[in-house]
Nucleic acid binder design. Structure first.
Lengths: 327, 327
DNA sequence: TTACTAATACTCAATTTGAGATTTAATGGA
DNA sequence: TCCATTAAATCTCAAATTGAGTATTAGTAA
């Protein structure tokens, strides 16, 4: 069983880009969910080409690039997705084809401090329609949904829109971030779509002014925003069945902080009493005898992650049904 | 923001292999879970190289290869994982590096018939330790776990083994198929590891007889068995929260058949009465007035998937906790 | 007519959920 | 010092879900 040579010698060279979505919670800004960029002006994610000569696995390559670009040593890393159609942003080189693989990394507030605050960007700047913490985002009904249905070419696309955005009676599935972003891209409702449709500009902003005024959040170079959407979907799903949230927290935290962080990930509010009942019942946390005094109100107990759970199979996450009610 | 040229001109050529894990249920064999191979002798999964000249996305490339090799048009397809260290099986060509991306496809019994039965192989032939339907597989305690702990080099590896195999008090997490396979590979308990350690053989069996006698199931060329492990883990997870099971069934089925298929996926038995209560409560199925007469016993009603659920967001799957008790 | 088999129906205690009301411990004026 | 304010922490309770049965029914074969 030997590996056959490529059928066709004059084929394109393939290049694999490794892209890191490094997520952390901003402890100074009421627990906002943030992502690391390496270039404030352009919102570039840390990335680099995979070079099998130097790195045995793609994940090792990714860690290398992140180390190089930011000095950070990543702990938790997981592969997200490999996009083969990165050619949807064009570089003008017909002899090379770029494939991009995204990774999700999680960083706690201590590690977070190694980077300038300005490079940590609020995730919802890129997806304003994904944040239901202050009610349903008006942009959905004022802009996105009408535009999508305008663009839709029939019942099948209507169906897709309904499935992704849960219009009307159906429920919003917060994990469906990618399907929503892809639809918006196809319908030209995000800047990247406008950019990619214009072959001679590789992301530089010299596109006609009107088109850049899309109200659908900040944009990113390459397909980085699509990768970020994948990461958001993944962490929203994961937080419900694995205790990843603790990788985002400091060693000591109040239950309220824990809740705010979870809400930042899920993009909606949770019921306070039931939230704490759950984490306590599952013994995910242990109370310390330290207290945190607030400017007003009863001081909160500080908790830590139950270290006894490290290395125990089947530790569940927060087991939160999709879209709970307000707190 | 133009894409920089590769730093280093004399780098290796990268080739992307696309691999399909096509899964179906064997209706003639009490609902066994099977996978399509294109080469009975070698257990080869359908695969082909990604050629961006001809296919816009990797998924389109995959569908093309499957069509080519088997004539089948795939419906449900989802990407699994991209392995960059496929170099762990060697082809002796130091100038090319192979990356492999796995896909999961699901096929119903009608489509299944298009292929010769002999090419559909029982998934548990490749993972005998994953099947708890007739109790805990003896191979775990007789061979795998003792060998793993022998091989383990300390407390940290012990921990890894415990996490993946849930030894003793901890529970078996049926979704952890990949972690288990990877450990067994590292510990040289699967044939692929022996093969890959031997650089001048590319999968042909001329390795010393003793090593091929590993009792850990049939093996596959390349890293196909690792990809299959990824697929099994994914479908085990997915069946619990999305109604994928119906893509594996004929249009009409009894609740018992539905249960057997689910058990084949999960690798353990379920409680019969509760299973039917669940699918009925969630209105996943609709009773028809057809009956299926068995050789003995009361005839069973035929059901069909509730078509009203097509296109409804948030349809849940079978919501089965990890490892239920016997039926 | 009777044994046998499997589908279907029903039961019931124990848990878990969803949504609250109530109590407690702090702070900062009047 | 006392009181309003704030948020943590505790407690309540009905409704829904789960886990693990027992009981009944509709067929087949002897």
């Amino acid at each position: 069983m030997s590996h056959p040579a490529h059928k066709n010698a004059k084929s394109m060279e393939i290049i694999i880009d490794l892209n890191a979505v490094i997520i952390s919670i901003d402890p100074n800004n009421q627990g906002e969910l943030t992502v690391l960029t390496i270039d404030k002006a352009n919102n570039l994610l840390p990335w680099g080409q995979y070079d099998p000569m130097h790195h045995k696995t793609m994940e090792i390559g990714l860690r290398h690039w992140v180390k190089n670009l930011s000095g950070m040593m990543l702990d938790y890393v997981e592969q997200l997705y490999t996009f083969g159609d990165s050619g949807r942003f064009s570089y003008g080189d017909p002899n090379r084809h770029i494939v991009s693989t995204g990774y999700l990394a999680i960083v706690n507030p201590e590690i977070r401090e190694q980077q300038p605050t300005s490079q940590w960007r609020n995730i919802y700047d890129f997806f304003p329609w994904e944040d239901f913490r202050n009610g349903r985002p008006p942009i959905l009904d004022k802009f996105i949904l009408p535009k999508l249905y305008d663009w839709s070419d029939g019942i099948e696309t209507d169906q897709r829109i309904k499935l992704s955005f849960g219009s009307q009676n159906d429920v919003w599935d917060e994990e469906n971030t990618v399907a929503r972003f892809e639809l918006m891209y196809e319908a030209n409702l995000v800047f990247e779509a406008v950019r990619d449709a214009n072959p001679d500009m590789s992301g530089e902003i010299n596109i006609n002014e009107a088109d850049t005024k899309l109200p659908t959040g900040s944009y990113m170079p390459f397909d980085h925003r699509r990768i970020l959407a994948t990461a958001l979907g993944r962490i929203r799903s994961k937080v419900k069945y694995k205790p990843v949230i603790f990788d985002l927290m400091s060693n000591f935290f109040t239950l309220f902080e824990l809740q705010k962080s979870t809400e930042a990930i899920l993009g909606h509010r949770l019921h306070k009493q039931n939230f704490r009942r759950y984490v306590e019942r599952e013994k995910l946390v242990v109370k310390t005898d330290e207290m945190q005094h607030q400017p007003s109100g009863r001081p909160a107990s500080l908790y830590e992650f139950n270290k006894q759970l490290v290395g125990v199979a089947n530790v569940v996450g927060l087991k939160i049904g999709n879209s709970s009610s307000a707190y």
